[in-house]
């Protein structure tokens, strides 16, 4: 996946570069992406290191996308979908949930702590929740520091 994270001039596993932590937010078009729009409109700021990637549905987020994010140097991956019952595609969000549940132990086993991957339900009207969730996630990632896989150029 071309996440555009790694910038040649920043390569390496320099722990001092906390400010350069990368958080990718894979969000669903209908709910969470709209919430992000709303957050923008309401002038709610979320941390600058978060990059939003829009999917039609969290149910189309392949486990491999998540792996790619981490191997490509992401320090945190945030997934935002519709609340259960709200999915535009009925159960996409629930599929995302079980997939994430399944991939967390894989990530944890290979040195990517589960806190680096978070799933939140954020409805289209919940701009505020988007801000809160992304902020708190970014804070957790800041505390964890750079990912072990950062700069390994494994993809």
């Amino acid at each position: 996946m071309n996440t555009g994270i790694s910038r040649p001039e920043e390569a390496g596993t320099d722990n001092s570069r906390h400010k350069e932590l990368d958080v990718l937010a894979l969000v669903c078009n209908w709910c969470t992406y709209t919430a992000a729009d709303l957050a923008g409109v309401t002038r709610l700021h979320y941390p600058a290191q978060v990059r939003l990637i829009r999917f039609m549905c969290t149910g189309m987020i392949d486990m491999r996308y998540i792996l790619s994010c981490f191997l490509d140097g992401a320090d945190g991956v945030f997934i935002g979908g519709c609340h259960p019952g709200d999915c535009h595609y009925l159960t996409g969000n629930l599929k995302a949930r079980v997939r994430i549940k399944g991939i967390r132990p894989v990530l944890e086993s290979v040195g990517i702590p589960p806190q680096r991957l978070r799933l939140e339900w954020i409805g289209a009207s919940e701009g505020k929740k988007l801000q809160e969730d992304l902020t708190s996630f970014a804070r957790v990632i800041e505390q964890l520091g750079p990912s072990d896989y950062k700069g390994m150029n494994l993809v």
Binding site: I61, G92, K95
Partner: peptide, 10 residues
């Protein structure tokens, strides 16, 4: 089909 991609992901 409504194009959600669930089949592709699974």
């Amino acid at each position: 089909c409504r194009g959600c991609g669930a089949c592709v992901a699974v």
